[in-house]
Computed example of a mutant assay.
Amino acid sequence: MTLSKKMINAQVMDRNADLFRCPICLAEMAMLDMSRLVCTHNHSFDLSKNGYVNLAPQAHMTKYDQSLFGARKTVMTSGFFDGVLDAVIKTIEGQGHAIILDAGCGEGSHLSTVVERLTGEVTGVGIDLAKEGITAAAKEYPGLIWSVADLANCPFQDDQFDTILNILSPANYAEFTRLLKPGGLFVKAVPESGYLKELRAIFYEDKEQKDDADPVARVAEHFDEISTERVIYTFPLADGLLAPLIQMTPLTWGASADKIEEALQTAIPEITIDFTLIFGVNREETG
């Protein structure tokens, strides 16, 4: 008998129910009837038909819709981001049993790739506030835990995760340090000046976009053993990839239809990927 995606995901949640805490009252949770997570104070959260759970108590509107996540999936499954993920996997490999949280997982492709390529027993948990992204993730990548959740109120117990990934997503460092086990690894991917520079030249007309924030210093405020790795490469744009790439990147949001059409008509043979990976170790508990 072939299990449904909902049942596959429910089984993973059931085995890892001790990870969860109620987003309303912070109580422990358990899986009931393989269909809902319920806390000890009887707050109940049903699994969707695809097997994700919505643990964001209040509805949130985001600017990320189904078509955007569809475009992102097309780009990411082409191998566009593999060089970055390879560097991430190389760093976190060898931890043995690993519980990995992707905070801001979008449509789930990054987490799925990391879990698939790591050796040993790995449990992947992906959260995002955009319901459309989590819906796509649960449908496409069964066997992982997917939840609509707020980074400011992560629905998990303290000291549960071996690794937290934060790729092209906002961070909540107070929550990340709470969730990571002592000695756990934090990984943040930050775009650098060369990232998608071919599109920047069109949409920003070569005007430099400055960001005064220092992400390495920010991570160092919360984590120890800080290290960085710069990952730069070019990726050939096969037929059909330029349009979804333009659609998925915030670089183009708010651009005029004429500017988008100009970009679509530009023969861009390859695109530049340029990231700094920041690694930090969660501070060990003291006395």
Rank of each mutant, 00 (worst) to 15 (best):
S67G: 04
I167F: 14
Y141R: 02
G133S: 02
D86A: 13
A263Y: 05
H97P: 06
L245D: 00
S147M: 05
F235I: 06
D214Q: 08
V53G: 01
D86T: 11
D162T: 05
G83N: 01
E205N: 15
M13I: 15
R218Q: 13
G183I: 10
E192F: 02
Y52R: 01
T252S: 15
D128E: 09
E192L: 12
N54V: 01
N54Y: 02
A267D: 14
M61R: 12
D206F: 05
C25L: 14
M31W: 03
M34R: 15
K207S: 14
F235Y: 14
K197N: 11
P23G: 06
G79K: 12
Y52P: 00
C39W: 03
I92P: 07
A217W: 02
D158I: 03
T119G: 10
K181G: 08
K207N: 12
A238I: 01
D212F: 11
A217I: 02
S35A: 15
S48I: 04
K49S: 12
R178V: 05
G183K: 07
Q66S: 14
E198H: 11
T228L: 02
I278T: 12
P250E: 08
L85Y: 06
E116G: 12
Q160M: 13
D224H: 10
K197G: 04
G280V: 08
S112W: 08
V38F: 05
H41W: 08
M31A: 04
P244H: 07
G120Q: 03
S4W: 04
A56I: 02
L32A: 09
A213P: 00
A17N: 07
Q160D: 04
I145K: 02
A98G: 06
E107L: 07
G94I: 12
V115N: 00
V12A: 09
N166F: 09
E261Y: 09
M31C: 09
A243D: 12
S35E: 15
L129P: 06
I260L: 14
V219M: 04
A152I: 04
N172Q: 12
L245F: 08
T40G: 03
K63M: 11
M248G: 07
Q160G: 05
M248Y: 04
A30W: 03
S109C: 13
L111G: 00
A189L: 10
P244G: 10
E262W: 01
C105W: 00
D214E: 10
C105M: 03
A267Y: 13
P250L: 05
L264T: 06
V115M: 01
T286H: 12
T177Y: 08
L32Q: 15
R230E: 09
D159K: 11
D214W: 07
